[in-house]
Simulated assay, not measured.
Amino acid sequence: MRPIDLAREHGLSAQAIRNYDDAGILPPTERSEAGYRIYTPVHAQALRAFLALRGGHGHQQAMEIMRATNQGDTESAYRLIDAAHVALLAERGTRTEVAMALGSLSTTTPTPVHGRPLTVGELARRLGVHPATLRTWETAGIVRPERDRATGYRRYEPDCVRDAEIARQLRRGGYLLRQVAQFIESLREAGGADALRAFLDSWQDRLTVRSRNLLAGAAQLDTYLTLLDQTQQGRTAR
């Protein structure tokens, strides 16, 4: 098989195949008397495995998995695959925590703050908490007060007050500081509760797609490993 024969199946260029070969993504190739690379069905399956792995692991990690496999270091390849599943499970857990926190919030909209920013004492009285609690929340990244340039005192703007009121509600619901901080950060990035709901839906879709891609990559890699074993057994038999 020629580079173009491998490339045609995936809509790639022959140069891309040569690049993948040079990068160690494909197993070692033999050369014809004229110096051309000779590819086999094993190389074709290696390419399928790499492209499938790339969908779930990304280019760099898929390349590292294939390099390890082609070097006979399947233990390292398995570790990389396992690490991807662990990371995905952790991300899935984070998404679940954020969704649960959003669902636990009451439908009552916090009373808007008008006029000047609140001091730490004023906000503490508004929430019914100790000022030290607000400083703990600040350390955890839940609230981000500004500082008065003249006095150095904390100033809690309306968005900061909103975050503090949400934090109080979640803390009363039993959420840990880490969970509250994660939720508040997600809320900030999304741009509000409604936007966060849409973001959570798209986040779930991305997790589902990545899970399927990881499965597809594992299936193609398993087929490749089987071909490698069969090829090795054939050589041993001869």
Rank of each mutant, 00 (worst) to 15 (best):
R126H: 05
D82M: 03
R67V: 13
R2I: 01
L177Q: 08
M1Q: 05
L214F: 04
T223D: 15
R197V: 03
R188D: 11
R116D: 14
R235P: 01
G11S: 05
L102P: 06
Q61I: 07
L88R: 09
E97C: 05
Y224L: 13
S32L: 04
A83R: 15
Q71I: 04
R18K: 14
A87C: 01
L6V: 02
R238D: 11
A46I: 00
L134P: 06
R212F: 14
A49E: 08
Y175K: 02
R238K: 06
P110G: 12
R92Y: 04
T111Y: 07
Q71L: 14
R48S: 05
R235W: 13
P41K: 07
R178M: 01
A44L: 09
A23F: 05
H43G: 05
A140V: 00
D73K: 05
G234H: 11
R8F: 08
C160A: 12
R206E: 15
G115T: 00
D21H: 09
T208L: 14
L214T: 11
L51V: 01
Y153R: 12
H130P: 00
N19P: 00
L127F: 11
A49P: 03
R154M: 11
L215C: 07
G141D: 13
P41R: 04
Y39C: 02
A140H: 11
P41C: 06
L221T: 05
A124N: 09
E138L: 05
L200E: 10
E64N: 09
E9L: 06
V120M: 14
R171L: 05
Q179F: 01
A14W: 00
E91W: 01
I81E: 14
S13G: 14
L225S: 04
Y36M: 07
G152N: 14
L118I: 06
H85I: 03
R188W: 11
E165W: 08
Q71T: 11
Y175S: 03
R48Y: 00
G141F: 10
P112K: 10
R172Y: 03
R37L: 11
I142D: 08
V120R: 15
A198Q: 14
A218K: 13
S104N: 06
L51D: 02
A49R: 06
R116G: 06
A140I: 01
D82R: 10
G173F: 07
R135Q: 12
C160R: 11
E75L: 15
A195K: 12
Q233H: 10
D194P: 00
G35H: 09
T69Q: 11
R212T: 14
A77Q: 09
G192Y: 08
R2F: 03
T111Q: 15
Q15C: 01
H43T: 01
R125C: 01
R116M: 11
Q204C: 03
A44T: 00
S32C: 06
Y39A: 02
A237I: 03
L80T: 03
L105R: 13
T136P: 00
L6W: 02
V161A: 09
T119Q: 12
